[in-house]
Simulated assay, not measured.
Amino acid sequence: MAVNLKRSSGGGTQVAVSRRRMLAWITGTGLVGSGVLSAISNFVFIKPRATYGQPQRFSIGKPDDYPAGTRIALDARRICVVREGNRIAAVSTTCTHLGCIVGLADTGFACPCHGSRFDSDGTVTGGPAPRPLPWYKITLAPNGEIEVDKDTEITPGSYLTL
């Protein structure tokens, strides 16, 4: 590995770099670059990119927002809030057949997609739905608002007494 030093007429020194040294420099630069790129891609990979959707525990307002004797569908949350006197409950509005959003009907709930019918308690009365509509746990938060927990299914007909 020879480095040739030559004097130029301007008083500076020119270095003639051998082919081997130039290839070693290019190879080293490529290896360092690929190592940096690999490290960056590993850090990007470690960071989760998942969007987890809406929380399964959420507030739906105060009990006064739901007058006695009403059934109010909250389509964005896929639940129906049922209030009977001083009792309140949350029933799913997701059809147990293929996941369509069921609508309120005179006798309970009706699926517009495949014709499943449910009574006011969510029990299947007709159609292809294999199971009744689930009921979700409902609690009263310390601030006085109603909280629904869609991760916890309860026995149909179980109301929260206010």
Rank of each mutant, 00 (worst) to 15 (best):
I154S: 02
L37Y: 10
Y66K: 13
T51G: 02
D119L: 13
A73C: 03
V36E: 00
A129W: 11
D64K: 15
L162H: 12
E145Y: 11
L140K: 15
R49Q: 10
L133S: 09
R20L: 10
S8L: 14
G30A: 12
A16Y: 09
A110H: 05
L37K: 10
L74T: 00
P134G: 10
P132D: 01
P132T: 01
S18R: 06
P142H: 05
S120L: 02
T155W: 02
G11K: 13
N143V: 02
V3D: 07
V15T: 04
T93K: 11
L37M: 13
P134Q: 08
A16G: 02
F58M: 08
I40M: 01
S116M: 08
D106M: 08
R117D: 00
T125E: 04
A105V: 05
G53I: 02
V82R: 14
S34F: 13
P142C: 08
R131K: 14
G35A: 14
A105C: 08
L23G: 00
G61W: 14
A50T: 08
R83A: 05
S34C: 10
T13I: 13
R57Y: 06
V81W: 08
T139H: 03
G53S: 00
G33Q: 07
E147M: 15
S18W: 07
N86H: 11
N4F: 04
S38K: 03
R87Y: 00
P112E: 06
A39N: 02
T123N: 11
N86G: 04
G53K: 04
R19M: 01
A76M: 07
D119G: 09
K150G: 00
Y52P: 00
A16P: 00
G35W: 00
W25S: 09
E147V: 15
R71V: 14
G69Y: 10
S38T: 06
V81Q: 02
S8D: 12
G11F: 09
G35K: 01
Y52G: 06
T51I: 02
V102I: 10
